[in-house]
Amino acid sequence: MATRVTPVLNTNQNYVDGNDALPPAAAMDMPRQVLENTRRLTIATLMGRLFLRNA
């Protein structure tokens, strides 16, 4: 099961409580996810792997 994210009270005063603004500020951490696979399988890496495996 995933770990729980703990809510953090927001000290940002740009958003105030009230019916015309956002709800009572309670900031949450929302990490940017890693989506792109930066590993490139090239002939060089393939040869390298083969070499390491056989070495």
Binding site: D20, A27, M30
Partner: peptide
Amino acid sequence: FYRNRTDQYGRKAGNIEDFIRKSGG
């Protein structure tokens, strides 16, 4: 509640993300 964003970062997903970052807790 109502708020207006000025930068529109991430379009709709970014709009919801902005809410969660600031008030999701």
